[in-house]
Design a protein around this nucleic acid. Structure first.
Lengths: 254, 254
DNA sequence: TATACACCTTTACGCTGCGTAAATGTCAAC
DNA sequence: GTTGACATTTACGCAGCGTAAAGGTGTATA
């Protein structure tokens, strides 16, 4: 009925370091310490460890676990509800991240594909199929169909009209960019209009516009040969010019 | 066109500490250092910072960002795809946590409510409504209806038959527990059967059974007066006896 | 010109939850 | 007496900075 660190650790499936750490932060102290300085745990400590591990499995922090189990009449279920809300907040943030990564990839692939004059419908289908092939099965199994389909929604729901708008904006960016380059000044009014058109184009894909994303994408235009080629067909140096205009537009440069 | 730390930081919306840190880890070094030791950043550094912030917004680690932007012909889009997979893995883990927290809450509330002889359907409806009232609106707006509805699925989909099974198991646990207590030994065969029945009952709610969760719940039976009352109606000390049996059943105690 | 004040520098601890040494003591068996 | 499996403590490391502390620099103003 008495356990040393290693014994208790083995039984509970954790490391002895963890038990020492729990002692250190005062969340689980041994029943007593023997003459050699060994930590000796008893029945009550086993029970307490159970609770700790239980909450730990639910992702509750040790600090909160401490509060829950040290105050005798602490409302554990309310603590779990609060914890649930925190987890949901985390998930929403994570979803935003994933959505933005998805859209960045789509944007990239899309521009390249469209540059190659592939059909829009074909492109959408292709993207979805590629995605499916790569990790669709695994995700659908573990995560459910709604989730996966949702990821493609934005893309699928973009109908012909919206596509035409995207195309018009694309053309307008190129036209305005060409005109602006004659002034040679990325901060001039026309260049800023080009940047604004580019933002509008970007917003066809992104739900949430941020300066950082916009400026980051502009930088990529210069770094990625395929993008650079797309814009440079207007005039040599157009990608760099657009980047400068966008950096000024987003307030990242003066 | 030249910036000190503070100026660049303000422009980019980050702290000067961050810029010093980026210098320290070699991800963004200043163009030069002036006679007083001040960091001076130029045009190229602004561009580089853009990229860093762009990837950072997508949740990419600084270490990976370093790899992406320092190797000139690194495939950024593949890096993003890999990153996307990592994010998806994270989300799946998070979903598992949330689902388990939900079920724990449901289990708890459920036992209490059922103890109070409320109707099962009423209980389900009540739980869902309460949830809706508390954080439904916010979540549905930001996260989409499918998500929220999915959370309630397990609960809703539990039909009358399944409910009957739960009730039978509940009764069987109590019966077997009563019988086992006459032996006075939580490790005896009958007591272990009670623990196993309890596990079966638990699995009606939890998708994923773990020893820790089982043992943790058993501990709660002793700590929470309402649970204790439920089991102690069999006989005084029944909650403790069941806990001991479960701790042995889950291998947490000998 | 002295002083105030904003800005710059470096060094270094803190957060979470342990993993992973390193250096050393203890217990049981051979 | 030695081996080997345990125990102990101290302490750095992880990511990405926040937040002092202790000091030098730049410049506008009284």
């Amino acid at each position: 009925m008495e356990y040393t660190v290693q014994r208790l650790a083995k039984m509970a499936g954790i490391s002895s370091r963890t038990l020492r750490y729990y002692d250190e932060i005062g969340i689980l102290k041994p029943a007593r310490i023997n003459s050699s300085g060994y930590r000796i745990y008893g029945k009550a400590e086993v029970d307490r460890l159970q609770q700790i591990l239980f909450y730990r499995e639910l992702g509750v922090s040790l600090e909160e676990i401490k509060e829950i189990i040290t105050s005798p009449n602490f409302n554990a279920i309310n603590a779990l509800r609060e914890h649930r809300e925190k987890l949901l907040t985390k998930r929403r943030q994570l979803d935003l991240l994933i959505a933005n990564v998805d859209k960045t990839i789509a944007l990239w692939e899309g521009r390249i594909t469209m540059t190659d004059k592939e059909k829009f419908e074909g492109f959408k289908q292709k993207m979805i199929e590629e995605n499916e092939e790569k990790y669709g099965k695994e995700i659908r199994e573990k995560y459910g169909d709604e989730e996966v389909d949702k990821s493609y929604n934005k893309l699928k729901n973009m109908n012909k009209e919206e596509y035409d708008r995207v195309e018009k904006l694309s053309a307008a960016v190129l036209d305005t960019l060409k005109e602006a380059m004659e002034t040679g000044d990325p901060s001039c009014e026309i260049a800023q209009k080009a940047a604004d058109l580019h933002r509008q184009w970007l917003c066809c894909f992104w739900d949430k516009y941020t300066k950082e994303a916009h400026a980051g994408l502009a930088q990529m235009y210069v770094d990625d040969e395929r993008f650079k080629a797309y814009y440079d067909k207007v005039k040599a140096g157009a990608a760099e010019f657009l980047r400068e205009a966008i950096l000024i537009y987003t307030g990242m440069k003066k």
